[in-house]
Design a binder for these strands. Sequence first.
DNA 1: GTTTTATGTCAGCCATGTTGACCAATTATA
DNA 2: TATAATTGGTCAACATGGCTGACATAAAAC
Lengths: 165, 165
Amino acid sequence: MADIKPIGKALFLREEELRRGIELMFFAYRDFTGEPDSILESQNMGRAHHRAIYFIGRSPGISVSELLVILNITKQSLSRVLSALMENEFVVQETGTTDRRQRLLYLTEKGIALENQLTSVQGKRFARAYREAGVDAVEGFQRVLRGLVDQSTRDQIDSFDDKPK
Amino acid sequence: MADIKPIGKALFLREEELRRGIELMFFAYRDFTGEPDSILESQNMGRAHHRAIYFIGRSPGISVSELLVILNITKQSLSRVLSALMENEFVVQETGTTDRRQRLLYLTEKGIALENQLTSVQGKRFARAYREAGVDAVEGFQRVLRGLVDQSTRDQIDSFDDKPK
DNA sequence: GTTTTATGTCAGCCATGTTGACCAATTATA
DNA sequence: TATAATTGGTCAACATGGCTGACATAAAAC
């Protein structure tokens, strides 16, 4: 009897635990993006703007093509967002020095302020979750999330973990 | 010196660990939904259909209003999705027995097959992540995700954990 | 018998993704 | 040096999936 238990546990994990994971991903992502969405909405911007602001803030001087790879959208989609961000003075672009075709992107003071506000809001949520879950849980959380992404995405994450903000 | 270390660690967690969490959420959610999106696209459906199918499969006989609460969208948005799902015979509705105003939703055989396919694809991803991260990581993953959601969402998750599939 | 609830529907708007085509400036290469 | 490739921008059109507002019907509740 006792040696059947692991199988029972494995099955339990595959059924119930699996659905729990799927559902937690759905709900957590929804709530995690909810507050920033509200803040942005009041400024006539959306999640797409948030992503651009976040990753420009993460890597100041990032080129358009690098940002495209991270966001994984078309340049036409990004263009619309970047135009709005520059129009409203959250972002500026400078011509690259070594390669003058590139447009290197930077947040303005205004952009930095907004990025800080948005990241701070999400940071408080994470801080709460981390505090409630305990320090040990955090590593597990990151390990699993990391395992959920595609291999190509993992390489990407690693590559800009090397040159952080 | 030794008693300063916790502060150092806390700061490290607040800056780098925080951004890592934010980024992992973004990338993991994107890749996690990517495969189902592809499958659905070939059938002229999208993520909205997936969510409906998933939660109807999770709770067969769920009413429209209950589904609305879970998905947190307007009835007009859901209506469009449900109409398509019924049109294409993935979902059927039955008039409620105790309350004849309700439309209780069920997956058809075809709907169950699609749901299984989609959940299986995501399940394999989870299985890989769980395997790579180790059993202990899974609990941490779930604890943190749970901590990330709003209190109201948490109540919601608990309430339908009581009456699972 | 009136009111509330559960659901559906029509019409239109917005954000954000897509494809395809084409262009200019700049860099790299044959 | 002439040509090709890269970086980035733009225009047009389209799809998805949110939203609001208005209105309708059947059933339940009071």
